[in-house]
Design a binder for these strands. Structure first.
Length: 591
RNA sequence: GGAUCCGUAGCGAAAUUGGUUAUCGCGCCUCCCUGUCACGGAGGAGAUUGCCGGUUCGAGUCCGGUCGGGUCCGCCA
């Protein structure tokens, strides 16, 4: 070893020892007749000092610059009276350097690493990620992620789960996101796809009798990134169990999520049921009451249907919406009457982005009701609405009149934005909940009359085959559930459909022939014909959860080497062009 | 694909209504300094204001385009 100690471990008890430290020059304070260097490694800082009496090393010490890598050997001494640095753990001692070895030099950094300096822009930091990683905060996050993954692994191992790796070179799957394709050299014209999730493999493991599987699984999706969605690749704690019900999955997951929250955040878990379990919200209720299938339950702001009250009113926007089979929902926001005109305009844009046609409101000010719609509603109905919503002076009520889903989602977006504006998102809280009872089917967004899978075609319909035969497809619920944390989707899972007959029937309703199902999901269906156990599981997005637990503004901070917002690796300059020879071998022509 | 914000020395920022030589802090370089720890002092270098074009006597500032980046919608579990 080049060192006897790290830069974080020396203290008074080491006084008098001869030690060797290695690290980076973090800071240099040259006093002419004495030079102090703060030597840094990932464990901490130690002050080393040079004085001119040791002529042979003084010259070298004078040359040292920031981020040079050195090895210093010398005596640990107590600092003189009143010169200890209380800010660092090693502040009571320093090392009197007797031998100095310059292990490497450094150019002037493209941005500063010092504490108390503003962060440089992200593109620059990503290009020089290897420098940015030296910052204590990123060091901390790398370590945190390691411990976080260890915690999950331990938890599941202790409960009899087996970690199994599934293929990275897999097959394109017709459902879901865009695939990353990998051309096959041995099979010209054919392609592998990187897995969007190990979904089919883990189900096949269940058929293979594994019983309890998990994997910190890389997942690949070629979709545009978001603040909570890393481009291209991300990781799920993918898990699956045989012979379980939805309840069994919840029982396994909840204590793990609680443990992760307690160990890896400073947040207090709120919104638990009296029995200590996570709240469960049926999908339909979540959309109606919170306007989202991933509601943020750290704050109330509840939406109320007022369809019955306004269905025959004189305000055409409301009554027409109801006549067309739609609904009218209302959101009361306390203290919302203080919103400025511009803020309300912005909220209207927020609603419109979710396909609402506009955003009606009643603002209850001191001695005055400000609203563009009161003249149509009339005083009586206005009073009724205010009463129904229990609104007081200072509040504002927003309305959405549209088909059910648009009314829900647009008002949900407004709810979310109001919470931002009013500072209702309390980062000291962790509000977990399950969204359950997802619908199995909905009308296709592309062909309005066509029935399509709402979520995931592999879920078991509630009521099984009988439901599929007897019920209106739009009324069929699935054993499908999402786990939500502070308004972020933390996980998604299901009890799977393991029965070939139910599978074919489920696909038939969505318009797939037996042949099509065989062609697209052949391996899975074939497997189910050979004794598939009932099974289910879920797959928490571990990076996103840690991002929320750590209050980070970007999921990129969770990755050692993240892609930028356009999917590029600025450090490695990928994606990049390849040689003609490579393309030729793969039978690929670039247009 | 769409919306929106941003782009000024290596980094972070400033620059009234368009007006002289583009300012400040940090960093960098040289010199001085034996107890600092965001050391201090003196001096210095460093900019085609992302790029192209336009309006104007005059553009960092206004207009059009373009490139790059952030966030959001679409998309995505």
């Amino acid at each position: 070893m080049l060192r006897t100690h790290t830069c974080g471990e020396l203290n008074k008890s080491h006084t008098g020892q001869k030690v060797s430290l290695t690290g980076w020059v973090h800071h240099r304070r040259d006093h002419g007749g004495i030079i102090f260097i703060d030597l840094r490694d990932r464990y901490g800082l130690t002050q080393i000092k040079f004085d001119p009496s040791k002529k042979d090393i003084w010259e070298d010490a004078d040359k040292l610059r920031n981020e040079w890598v050195v090895r210093a050997t010398g005596l640990v001494v107590s600092r003189p009276e009143n010169t200890a640095n209380e800010k660092i753990g090693t502040g009571e001692i320093e090392v009197e350097v007797e031998e100095l070895e310059i292990l490497n030099k450094s150019k002037t950094l493209p941005f500063e690493l010092k504490e108390n300096t503003e962060e440089a822009n992200e593109a620059l930091r990503l290009k020089y990620r290897f420098i940015d990683l030296r910052r204590p905060e990123l060091q901390r996050l790398l370590k945190l992620k390691d411990e976080y993954m260890q915690c999950m692994r331990n938890y599941l191992h202790e409960r009899g789960f087996t970690e199994i790796q599934t293929p990275i070179l897999a097959n394109s799957s017709p459902e879901g996101a865009r695939d990353f394709l990998v051309p096959s050299r041995l099979h010209p014209g054919k392609f592998y796809a990187l897995p969007q999730a190990p979904q089919q493999f883990k189900q096949l493991l269940m058929v293979g009798g594994v019983d309890k599987y998990f994997q910190i699984a890389p997942c690949f999706r070629d979709e545009d990134p978001r603040m909570d969605r890393h481009y291209g690749e991300f990781y799920q704690l993918d898990m699956e169990m045989s012979f379980v019900t939805q309840e069994d999955v919840f029982e396994i997951m909840e204590p793990l999520m609680i443990e992760l929250t307690e160990k890896f955040s400073n947040k207090k878990i709120t919104n638990l049921e009296e029995n200590g379990r996570f709240k469960r919200l049926p999908w339909k209720e979540a959309l109606t009451r919170y306007g989202s299938d991933k509601p943020d339950l750290r704050f109330d702001l509840e939406i109320k249907p007022v369809t019955e009250l306004v269905k025959d009113c004189g305000f055409g926007v409301f009554s027409q919406a109801v006549q067309n089979g739609g609904v009218v929902h209302a959101l009361k926001v306390e203290k919302g009457s203080e919103f400025t005109r511009k803020e309300i305009d912005n909220l209207t844009e927020t609603a419109k982005a979710k396909e609402a046609k506009g955003l009606a409101y009643i603002s209850i000010k001191e001695n005055e009701i400000s609203s563009p719609i009161v003249k149509f509603l009339g005083d009586e109905l206005t009073a009724k609405l205010i009463k129904e919503l229990n609104a007081k002076t200072g509040d504002i009520i927003f309305f959405a009149a549209d088909e059910w889903k648009i009314a829900c989602l647009s008002l949900g977006a407004v709810r979310n934005e109001c919470a931002n504006m009013l500072g209702l998102k309390d980062n000291t809280k962790a509000a977990w909940c399950w969204i359950v009872d997802f619908p199995m089917y909905s009308y296709s967004e592309i062909e309005p009359e066509k029935i399509d899978f709402e979520h995931n075609p592999f879920s078991m319909p509630q009521g099984g085959l009988q439901s599929l035969i007897e019920k209106d497809p739009l009324d069929i619920l699935a054993f499908q559930y999402d786990l939500v944390l502070n308004g972020f989707e933390a996980s998604s899972g299901a009890i799977r459909n393991h029965d070939p007959e139910i599978m074919y029937k489920a696909f038939e309703i969505a318009g797939y022939s037996k042949e099509e199902v065989d062609a697209q999901f052949g391996a899975l269906i074939r497997a189910f014909e050979f004794g598939a156990p009932p099974h289910g599981g879920n797959a928490p997005g571990i990076d996103r959860i840690l991002m929320v637990l750590s209050d980070l503004d970007s999921i990129r901070d969770i990755y050692a080497f993240p892609k930028d917002g356009k999917g590029k690796d600025l450090m490695m300059d990928s994606p990049s062009e390849v040689t003609e020879k490579q393309l030729k071998e793969l039978n690929i022509k670039i247009k």
